[in-house]
């Protein structure tokens, strides 16, 4: 019983990092994804090509490799030691994790947003133009709200995947939940910590699913 209690405490400590990775990745990757999708759709060929390459590489290589590259790259490539950086409660391991996750997820989000934006009919833009809306007004009032509704199911998929992907931060020894579970499992010679960690991940995703379903429902008043 004491084992389980200490496991729960350890995993809870890890969970806070897991949640942190999840939260900050969403905060940064969604706006970044919007920007990347704009760049990908740019009429200037070279700009579009650069963002296409970005998306291709970030989606085409393992996230774990990207994590290692962001963490070790500055030192091995440029000889810059960032290991001592500390922003508030966050050390460089954590910051590197957020950077790698955000860059990676932005690539996926960008393609989802591009699909949503390109699925909008030309008529919506034309009606807005003729009514005198500026480009910004058209984008934020007319296009984006409709795009959000269209991309929400795909975005939900990514969000749920992100929850589970946070465990990859283990590779940088970030003390997130999975790292803690692994440590507890080998110390106790038991799979219980893994099962408890699994329950944590599942519970988190269940809550997220419920919230996303509500949001989707709140937008179902039009088709």
């Amino acid at each position: 019983m004491g084992n389980l209690q200490s496991t729960l405490i350890q995993l809870w400590q890890g969970f806070q990092f897991t949640f942190g990775i999840f939260f900050f990745t969403l905060i940064f990757s969604i706006p970044l994804g919007l920007l990347v999708s704009r760049g990908r759709m740019s009429k200037i060929k070279i700009v579009s090509l650069i963002f296409q390459l970005y998306i291709s590489i970030l989606r085409g290589t393992p996230l774990m490799l990207q994590l290692l590259l962001v963490y070790f790259g500055p030192y091995y490539i440029f000889g810059v030691n960032l290991g001592s950086i500390q922003i508030g409660p966050f050390n460089y391991r954590f910051i590197a994790t957020i950077i790698a996750f955000s860059l990676n997820y932005a690539a996926y989000f960008a393609e989802i947003f591009r699909g949503g934006i390109q699925s909008m009919s030309k008529g919506q833009y034309e009606a807005a133009t003729v009514l005198g809306f500026t480009k910004m007004q058209t984008y934020f009032k007319i296009i984006l709200p409709q795009v959000v509704k269209r991309v929400l199911p795909s975005v939900s998929n990514e969000i749920i995947t992100l929850v589970k992907d946070t465990s990859l931060a283990q590779v940088l020894s970030v003390t997130e939940m999975f790292t803690k579970a692994s440590a507890a499992a080998s110390a106790q010679v038991s799979v219980v910590p893994f099962i408890v960690a699994g329950a944590f991940y599942y519970a988190m995703n269940l809550i997220i699913e419920t919230i996303l379903n509500r949001v989707e429902k709140s937008m179902s008043y039009y088709s």
């Binding site: 008529g123 807005a128 133009t129 409709q146 937008m219």
Partner: peptide, 16 residues
């Protein structure tokens, strides 16, 4: 643009 109105064949109302 404020001097004319345009009615489209397929309405192009804003569905949201």
């Amino acid at each position: 643009r404020s001097k004319f109105g345009l009615v489209f064949q397929n309405f192009n109302l804003f569905p949201h």
